[in-house]
Simulated scan of single mutants.
Amino acid sequence: MQLYGLKACDTCRKARKALQNQQVDYIDVRDGSVPDAVLAAALAKFGDALLNRASTTWRGLDAVAQAGDPLALLKAHPALMKRPLIVHDDGEMTLGWKPDVAAYYAALPGA
């Protein structure tokens, strides 16, 4: 399982702490890149919800950039991705760390 997030993100820290007993590879999206196939699959699954329109990065973009291709935006500005994005070895994905997602991971074996 891979967790894509940011080191400074409080939500990502909560997820990392909750998943500390799981086999999770943590990838900071600013330090390492999210593979193109993962980004494309996440965009196909979550659509525009994958873009964090509340972020300072988003607010710093002009209207032309904001209207651009979401995949290109995420590649150019990885901090635009809503987080954490958790990808299981079987390809299953979750986005964010809302109570329903946290409960899902709490119910996994070894949690």
Rank of each mutant, 00 (worst) to 15 (best):
T56N: 13
K82L: 00
K98E: 14
D90L: 02
D89A: 15
P78S: 10
M81W: 06
V87M: 07
G60P: 01
M93S: 09
A79I: 11
A41W: 08
Y26W: 15
N52F: 05
A49C: 00
D10V: 03
A107F: 08
M93Q: 15
A63I: 10
A49V: 11
H77K: 11
A102Q: 14
P70E: 05
W97V: 06
S55Y: 01
A107L: 10
D25K: 13
P35Q: 12
A15T: 06
F46R: 10
D100Q: 14
M81C: 02
L61H: 14
E92A: 15
A79C: 02
T56V: 05
Q23I: 10
K82F: 04
T11R: 01
E92D: 13
L6K: 04
A63K: 13
D62V: 14
Q66E: 04
S33K: 10
I86A: 06
T57F: 06
D48T: 11
K45R: 15
P78L: 07
L43A: 05
A107Y: 04
A72W: 07
M1D: 07
L19S: 04
L85D: 05
L74P: 02
A8M: 06
L61F: 05
D100P: 04
C12P: 02
D48H: 08
A107R: 12
D25S: 11
G47C: 09
A67Q: 13
N52Y: 06
A76W: 03
L73M: 14
Q66N: 04
P99M: 10
A72D: 13
A54N: 13
A49P: 00
Q22E: 14
A106R: 14
Y105M: 11
W97I: 10
P99H: 08
Q22K: 12
A42G: 07
Q23F: 00
L108N: 06
P99G: 07
V34D: 02
G91H: 07
D69W: 11
V101M: 09
D31K: 15
G5Y: 01
R59C: 01
K14M: 07
K98Y: 02
A49Q: 12
